[in-house]
Design a protein around this nucleic acid. Structure first.
Length: 1098
RNA sequence: AGUCUCGUAGCUCAGCCGGUUAGAGCACUACACUGAUAAUGUAGGGGUCGGCGGUUCAAGUCCGCCCGAGACUACCA
């Protein structure tokens, strides 16, 4: 018969190795997929990582979550394919290459050809693939590494194009311009990624100005002009970028904000003026004494400038007012201008409550401009200089972009001009947070740039609707973070002016009248042929669809004009969001596969992907398929260092995943990550925690298995006897099986609900607290004592079943150890046909074996034992010393019956002869009464406090009265309340004359009298213990029989005399004798008494 | 700056519908145990549950404000 494998010690990294080799050799991963039917599929999408950087410990986190649910569903009998993937395009790749080559974006096309550059990117992008694959294997992440999808392949690009074509044909793709961060110093637009680089936002001190915009007196404004004091009527607007003032086309007010009209004098020109400003902000610009000063008697020499209130207007009343252009260099031709509009973003937290609008230089401004049909002015060029039309400032940089010598801030000069022309109300330095270009360290500006867009906003409501059907873990990420984002969804800026990425498949005629979107290579082939024919060219489809080759392709419009490709690339997020389609090269191929694999049942990535991959998947799914792209999504938190600080190379607190895996093994790492905190909370990663998991959980489980293996091998237990019905098993077996089934049911539910932490913790608590620390400890003797009888077989079967079930339940989180344990059991017993736990199924719950009453009484047994042990401890009575009895007050019959049926367990656990149950006769037990707040609170309300006091003051007699009659009449503040037994919590408090210990409603007293016979038995047990130690020291086998000789000391005489048989059985001795001449080990029996013991093998 | 999340013992975390001694593990201290032993048990110290206010008979739990940490978003003028 095969033996259960036995080990010297627990070596988890070694187990990883062994199981990895086994998986490889037997192709377990493939079998786990192929063994499941295709119509039982569970669809998982792998979010593609970028292999141009090394994997970190946080990747182990997300991948553990991914892996465990895929494994779980496999073990539920589903077919779970996991196609790996690589994200290969995009800015991070380009930046890295540029850094390595020591070039900047400007050098591309000059110092290095685009061809060469893209070649470098292509080389760089898979640089760490091997390392990633290695990590994947070592951490036990099952994914198909041999057939990954790769975003830079022609097939992938073709699929992406086909999606764009679908969107294009739905008229969802348009060219427009948006306001984007732009670095005049570097001459390039910046991505939000670049703007989010650390240090990009800096506190800077800028010249800010409050400008006076003079309102035109016309029909519309007549009402506002009414009651004016001397001087013109001006609206005040504040800006930190005076250089945008020449491009001003509107002023925005808040619809619901209240504005005041006041009369005062301009602080620079001293001219009388009427000003409009948000009422709440008056105090920001005017002091109390200015309000109190007399407006009429002001003269220009006075220091104090008075003001007086003239009227109040709401924002809506101001809407539509016209004003004279502030700095009339150029007027817009593409729309209306110089009027007051309303904007929802206007607040009164800063400035004047009125916002100056220059659509070319602000995203909000642009948006509000579009909404109101405003024109725009762009009086600054791409170098950041004023254009010629701005006569007096023409050619001057709006910020110091070039480190010019004697650079003079043009904003100051503009402010001076405004002051002189009675157009400035206030000019001062203002400190604020402003983004800077990470490369040049110069302030960026926001500039209108041409872009291609997807009209995602048209699907806003549908996306929100679909999102509500997605199961998000945690909920708030989906409802709040993602949901809020969708509700404010803007169009998707698709284009990127870069080099290494999927080219936009759009060709346009010079004048923009004709455009074509290419959706496939065959279409491109046809179009090229057409162009060749008409334009007389000899081009062909490029072998590589990237720049620069694709840019060389000229197509032809319906009317015979040449069409050139729009030179932009597409956003990489579109690449990754296209993976449900593109990973199968759909729609060019694999229609059936695609149909079976859309949408995903489950995806998982870090929270940082909420607006990234999660969004791009969702958006494309919604727009193209009118469907969610995934049904369940887990977003994992960040992995921080043990002090809660983000890991970074700079701080040197980065944890190398390979080191952790090889030192502790994959399973403890995974287990720690899943059970220490919910995976969506940030994890403070501390290797000490991994070590603790290894020791406590894996160590305990290993010990339990080792214990089982040791005795099962001796008894040659291999589960060959038929399964003993639970009814015929001892109480404790039924109990652990009941707990086990409860565990299976909970864990199965938790896994199904994407709650790995609860699942792991439940398994851990079962193994540590119940299986090892209670079941095995109490049952030890059943395994090593006596014949191979029904009781023993029952013990083996029970323990085996627990271990086997645990191996299955833990396998999703700890795939190596789970499989190792399963195989160790199964190979010896041959109980199941599966060669790996990952091919097995999560066991079914046997509802019939769950016995809550049994679980309750075992809980009593544990608590009572614990109380007795603590009493022993207080009295310094070691457990080996038997004691006669414990006293247990009983409050109701059920409790007594429950305890009685576990009495034996308690007695042997705490080494006591009997339990004396004491009922409440003659007031032996003193009781304590407490109100049951839950039931009483509802009844009594305000009287609760007084009632609690009254109840706690009840006498022993009154308490017994309540117990007997079952009700009590309580009168509080002249109100009578009829209370019943359930409104009280009565428990035993003390037994006068005895030492007691209590835990909740259980109270125990211990009889500490030691009779002679008890004392002898105690000594006998001490002897057994010493002899066992000697056996062990001598390296006897646990089954060896021995002869024993003991010094003839008076202390041991009685013990040996009365308990000879007991001692002999315990230590497997054939003979036991007392002798005056013993040459064995010298051992201390009790304090100050030393005897000699000789144990020799028969 | 906004949105979201979090704040419970020295550390990592539980704490369900609000209900009265606020728990567990680690660490620390002491004492036991030792046919599972690179384990284990018992006991002990350690908390104004981030702060303030509110709702309620009752708040760690619900509400508001503030402080602190983090993530995401951001030209708020």
């Amino acid at each position: 018969m095969p033996q259960y494998r036995e080990f010297k010690k627990l070596d988890l990294p070694q187990i990883d190795q062994e199981i990895l080799t086994f998986w490889n050799k037997e192709k377990i991963f493939q079998k786990s997929i192929e063994g499941r039917s295709e119509d039982q599929s569970f669809v998982f999408y792998e979010g593609p990582p970028s292999a141009n950087g090394k994997p970190g410990i946080h990747h182990v986190m997300a991948r553990t979550v991914k892996d465990l649910f895929c494994r779980y569903h496999t073990m539920k009998g589903q077919r779970v394919e996991r196609k790996g993937g690589w994200d290969t395009h995009g800015l991070p790749v380009e930046l890295k290459v540029e850094k390595e080559l020591g070039i900047t974006k400007d050098d591309i096309g000059t110092k290095i050809s685009v061809e060469q550059y893209n070649l470098e990117c292509r080389k760089a992008v898979m640089r760490f693939k091997e390392m990633w694959d290695d990590l994947t294997r070592k951490m036990g992440y099952w994914a198909d590494l041999d057939n990954p999808y790769i975003t830079f392949t022609n097939d992938y690009i073709e699929s992406v194009w086909s999606l764009l074509k679908i969107l294009h044909s739905k008229k969802l793709i348009y060219k427009g311009y948006t306001i984007q961060p732009y670095s005049p110093a570097a001459g390039t637009g910046l991505s939000s990624h670049e703007l989010n680089m650390p240090g990009a936002y800096k506190d800077v001190s800028d010249t800010s100005a409050v400008a006076q915009f003079e309102v035109i007196n016309d029909e519309k404004s007549a009402a506002i002009f009414e009651g004016n004091a001397a001087g013109g009527l001006y609206i005040l607007a504040w800006t930190t970028t005076p250089w945008t003032l020449p491009s001003n086309v509107a002023l925005a007010v808040g619809q619901k904000i209240n504005y005041a009209k006041i009369a005062t004098y301009n602080p620079y020109t001293k001219e009388p003026v009427n000003l409009i400003i948000a009422e709440d902000l008056l105090s920001k610009w005017f002091k109390q004494d200015q309000a109190e000063a007399d407006y009429e008697s002001y003269s220009s020499e006075d220091k104090l400038i008075p003001y007086k209130m003239l009227g109040n207007y709401s924002g809506s009343e101001l809407e539509g007012l016209r004003y004279h252009q502030l700095l009339p260099y150029v007027q817009p031709v593409d729309g209306d201008a110089f009027k007051v509009v309303t904007g929802d973003f206007v607040s009164t937290s800063d400035g004047t409550g009125i916002v100056h609008i220059a659509p070319s230089f602000g995203a909000d401004d642009m948006r509000i401009g579009r909404q109101n049909g405003l024109g725009s002015l762009t009086l600054v060029d791409k170098q950041g200089k004023f254009v010629d039309e701005v006569t007096d400032f023409a050619g001057r940089y709006v910020k110091d972009y070039k480190d010019e010598e004697n650079y003079r801030d043009v904003n100051i000069d503009i402010s001076i001009k405004l002051k002189e022309e009675n157009k400035a109300f206030n000019v001062q330095k203002y400190k604020h947070n402003y983004p800077h270009c990470w490369r040049t360290d110069k302030p960026i500006l926001y500039y209108p740039l041409d872009s291609w867009f997807i009209k995602a906003s048209a699907f806003r409501e549908r996306m929100v609707e679909l999102n509500n059907t997605i199961n998000w873990k945690p909920t708030h990420t989906g409802e709040k973070r993602f949901g809020n984002w969708l509700e404010n969804l803007q169009d998707w800026n698709l284009s990127r002016s870069r080099y290494w990425g999927t080219p936009l498949p759009l060709w346009r005629t010079e004048d923009g009248t004709s455009e074509i979107c290419i959706g496939s290579i065959s279409e491109l082939t046809a179009e090229i042929k057409k162009a060749n024919d008409i334009l007389g060219l000899t081009q062909s489809v490029p072998e590589d669809l990237h720049k620069p080759y694709i840019d060389e392709v000229i197509l032809v419009s319906g009317d015979g004009q040449a069409m050139k490709r729009e030179s932009d690339l597409i956003d990489v997020w579109f690449d990754s969001g296209a993976m449900p389609f593109a990973q199968w090269h759909y729609p060019k191929a694999n229609h059936e596969i695609f149909k079976n694999n859309f949408p995903a049942d489950f995806i998982c990535e870090g929270v940082d992907q909420t607006r990234g991959w999660f969004y791009s998947l969702h958006a494309i799914g919604s727009m193209v398929m009118d469907s969610v792209a995934f049904k369940n999504v887990v977003s994992t938190g960040l992995v921080l260092d043990k002090d809660g600080v983000k890991m970074s190379k700079r701080l040197g607190n980065v944890i190398d995943p390979f080191e952790t895996l090889s030192k502790y093994g994959a399973d403890p790492t995974r287990w720690y990550m899943m059970t220490n905190a919910q995976p969506w909370d940030n994890l403070k990663f501390d290797v000490a925690g991994v070590e603790e998991v290894r020791r406590k959980f894996f160590g305990t489980l290993y010990n339990t298995y080792s214990f089982f293996a040791l005795y099962a091998n001796i008894d040659r237990f291999s589960f060959e006897q038929s399964y003993i019905p639970l009814k015929q098993r001892p109480e404790i077996d039924k109990w652990i099986i009941s707990l086990l089934n409860t565990l299976v049911s909970n864990v199965d539910r938790d896994y199904a609900d994407y709650e790995p932490t609860n699942a792991g913790r439940a398994i851990q608590s079962f193994v540590e607290d119940h299986l090892s620390n209670w079941y095995v400890r109490l049952c030890r003797r059943r395994f090593w004592k006596g014949d191979y009888n029904q009781d023993k077989i029952s013990a083996y079967q029970t323990l085996y079943e627990c271990l086997e079930t645990v191996s299955k339940l833990m396998a999703p989180i700890a795939p190596f150890f789970g499989d190792w344990l399963y195989r160790n059991l199964n190979q010896a017993s041959g109980r199941e046909k599966y060669e790996s736990v990952h091919l097995a199924l999560i066991p079914n719950v046997d509802e019939a074996s769950v016995d809550k009453a049994l679980e309750e009484r075992m809980d009593y047994a544990q608590r009572i034992s614990s109380l007795v042990l603590s009493l022993r401890k207080k009295e310094s009575l070691r457990v080996r010393q038997p004691l006669q009895k414990i006293l247990l007050p009983i409050l109701d019959q059920r409790f007594k019956e429950q305890v009685q049926s576990v009495e034996d367990l308690i007695l042997s656990e705490v080494n006591i002869k009997e339990i004396e149950y004491i009922t409440d006769t003659a007031g032996v037990i003193k009781k304590r009464i407490k109100p049951n707040f839950k039931t009483l609170g509802r009844k009594l309300g305000k009287d609760m406090k007084a009632a609690a006091q009254a109840i706690e003051g009840l006498t022993q007699n009154e308490i017994s009265e309540i117990e007997k009659s079952g009700n009590y009449n309580l009168s509080i503040n002249e109100t009578n309340y009829q209370l019943s037994l359930e409104d009280f919590e009565i428990s035993a408090d003390e037994i006068p004359g005895w030492q007691v210990a209590s835990d909740g409603d259980i109270t125990v007293a211990l009889d500490i009298t030691i009779t002679d016979i008890l004392k002898s038995e105690g000594i006998a047990r001490e002897l057994v213990n010493r002899i066992q130690n000697i056996r062990k020291q001598n390296d006897f086998d646990v089954t060896d029989r021995i002869n024993v000789a003991i010094s003839d000391h008076e202390l041991v005489q009685n013990a040996v005399h009365s308990f000879s048989e007991y001692i002999k059985t315990e230590v497997l001795a054939d003979h036991l004798k007392l002798s005056s001449e013993v040459t064995g080990h010298e051992v201390e029996l009790v304090e100050d008494v030393t005897i000699n013991v000789l144990a020799s093998r028969v």
